[in-house]
């Protein structure tokens, strides 16, 4: 029997733990008829940005994390952080996994690990404490907390002042009024206890940004599994995991939105005209990502188009 230890850096109630990793652990046990058992560790072995290395160097057998937390390392995965990918995390995640298999994986950015899945959270929107945002003009000079990477560039191109702060500081800088707002998916606002602080949500159809996640297994551990077990593990990982993850985010987003409505937060959906203006403004961000992807031999424009097409086609 093989026992896989999963590095875990989120609280047990977080959707990634409760609705993605735990069900996956059970699915792995079932699929391998108990030959592979999965243990999700209680205490983190390192900070979020160290998770990829923790898996790659064998400190844990399996782990999950955010590609953007190690800037410069993952270039191709930035395609899943770009604006307007889609309203359903399920569709985006499944489409993203397929794109990864077909166009991104062969560049070998995930050296040292076996990629079990990639996925995305729900569409990112704009939340503010004071100013009501219903278009690009309201964003000018607004201090918005971002986590770095593409979303930072997006905030800047739109005329906002991005404040790069770790997610652990979101509560402090918003409650204290250091930032005027934040870019987040619905789920994260209540999760970071911000539903009592932000007052307005500006919904950007198909999302202003997204975040790319990975689930990975140490390569040597993967090689040590029998071909039969490898196949069984992948039968519940890959696309199956992406679908489960997307569904979990969608559910968490819906619950988050309900909580926010109950907390009296008002929502505005940006008009088509405003979305078009935003898209125009964000062309340079896309162009920069395409340029970086080209250096790794991937046609970024085609990849983005393929991703959007697949999201569109999902479920039809």
């Amino acid at each position: 029997q093989t026992r896989l230890r999963v590095s875990n850096w989120l609280p047990p109630s977080h959707p990634i733990v409760a609705d993605m990793m735990r069900p996956w652990a059970e699915a792995v046990s079932d699929a391998t008829e108990g030959r592979v058992e999965v243990e999700i560790m209680e205490a983190p072995l390192g900070p979020p940005q160290a998770q990829f290395d923790i898996v790659a160097t064998g400190q844990a057998d399996v782990g999950y994390g955010v590609h953007g937390y190690t800037p410069g390392r993952f270039v191709l995965t930035q395609v899943a952080e770009l604006p307007f990918l889609g309203d359903s995390a399920e569709a985006v995640s499944v489409a993203y996994w397929r794109l990864h298999e077909e166009m991104l994986a062969e560049a070998g950015e995930h050296r040292g690990v076996k990629v079990l899945s990639v996925f995305a959270h729900g569409p990112g929107h704009v939340y503010t404490t004071g100013t009501e945002v219903d278009g690009i003009d309201d964003l000018q000079g607004l201090k918005l907390r971002t986590g770095g990477g593409i979303v930072n560039a997006i905030a800047k191109e739109l005329g906002a002042v991005p404040l790069l702060e770790p997610s652990s500081k979101t509560y402090e800088i918003l409650s204290a009024g250091i930032a005027d707002g934040i870019l987040f998916p619905h789920e994260s606002v209540p999760f970071f206890r911000l539903d009592g602080i932000v007052r307005h949500g500006a919904i950007v159809p198909r999302g202003l940004y997204n975040t790319s996640f990975f689930v990975a297994m140490n390569e040597a551990v993967w090689d040590g599994l029998s071909p039969e077990d490898q196949e069984a593990v992948m039968s519940v990982s890959g696309e199956a995991f992406a679908r489960r993850a997307g569904q979990a985010w969608d559910a968490a987003d819906a619950a988050g939105r309900e909580k926010m409505v109950a907390a009296g937060i008002s929502f505005v959906t940006l008009s088509d005209d405003e979305v078009a203006r935003i898209a125009e403004k964000l062309k340079p961000v896309e162009a920069r990502v395409f340029g970086e992807m080209a250096e790794k031999g991937v046609d970024g424009e085609a990849a983005l188009q393929a991703l959007r097409d697949r999201v569109e086609a999902y479920g039809n």
Partner: peptide, 23 residues
């Protein structure tokens, strides 16, 4: 408990990440 390679990697990781801890 795990293996020596993991312990060594963990040591390097901790020294590096602690030095860079913004807070």
């Amino acid at each position: 408990l795990l293996n020596p390679t993991a312990a060594l990697a963990m040591l390097g990781q901790i020294a590096y990440q602690t030095g860079l801890n913004y807070e």
